[in-house]
Nucleic acid binder design. Structure first.
Lengths: 145, 145
DNA sequence: CTAGTATATTTGATATATCAAATATATTTA
DNA sequence: TAAATATATTTGATATATCAAATATACTAG
């Protein structure tokens, strides 16, 4: 029926893997911090490590700018992040992690790393590289058109 | 910084590929039918080929049951699908594609197939199989935990 | 047969995705 | 320098994701 040929199947396999991974991540993150999402945890990590604008974060993790605005504003509401205006370029936001954000991140980072390790368990570095190469080909094929 | 090791990188590559693919699909689908989404097109195809319940569709394409309810109800509103009650099991929905749905599907199917071909262009069957195997490992790893 | 349990779907609440249009500020060009 | 263009972000509208709780119906054990 639907999963009839390899080039179709692959997209189901991708969807299945990414959703399983997100589910695992969400579950594990919730164990240590109950009010933060997987995306927010990742973004918190990015902000803490870099002086970076919303647009740059969005490009980095493949999010829409509109989504980024909303995610950041939820993070501000929950007091993980503070946002100010860049005085050199008043269009740009300056994002800073709060004390609460820092404390949370200390608990989150090992969880995020562990999730990645668990999910790639039994897969060699070579296989991961292969996987990445093929996925990049798909990405390029899609972007050309 | 963030993309520092292979086991991390891989999830970005997956996200990037699936988003690029969805974007291509949405763009191409829109060219022939302007008011249908990628998910809806896929679900239309599934319904037309099978006598299948919402729950079964959800399991097949890795969607939440709640999402399925909402997607189906949008498809009903747009008159692609009709929904009745299964008289043998009144909990279950019976989904049928409408005439409009059928006509639309005739235009959509070649597009869906072409999108898959374009995006896997230059990737061998062997590589696709490898990719699938590795992704399935990730899925299993995530589900065990 | 009845209570308890299982299954299919729905609803509510919140988060994210995506497109288009709007704002605000910066930069470039005529 | 004024107008056109570019960049960063926001807002509105709609679709989908996800969890928890609620409904409705079916099934099973006592």
């Amino acid at each position: 029926m639907i999963f009839n040929n390899p080039s179709s199947t692959i997209f189901y396999a991708i969807e299945e893997a990414i959703k399983a991974y997100r589910k695992l991540s969400a579950k594990e993150i919730k164990k240590v911090i109950s009010d933060i999402t997987v995306d927010q945890a990742l973004i918190l990590q990015i902000i803490s490590e870099n002086q970076i604008t919303q647009t740059e974060i969005a490009d980095l993790i493949f999010k829409d700018y509109a989504s980024m605005t909303r995610i950041i504003s939820l993070m501000i509401k929950k007091e993980y992040v503070i946002k100010t205006v860049n005085q050199q370029d008043k269009r740009a936001a300056v994002l800073k992690i709060t004390k609460k954000g820092e404390i949370s991140l200390k608990k989150l980072t090992p969880i995020i790393n562990k999730n990645r390790q668990i999910s790639t368990n039994g897969i060699s570095q070579t296989e991961l590289e292969q996987l990445k190469t093929i996925l990049n080909t798909i990405t390029q094929n899609c972007k050309i058109n």
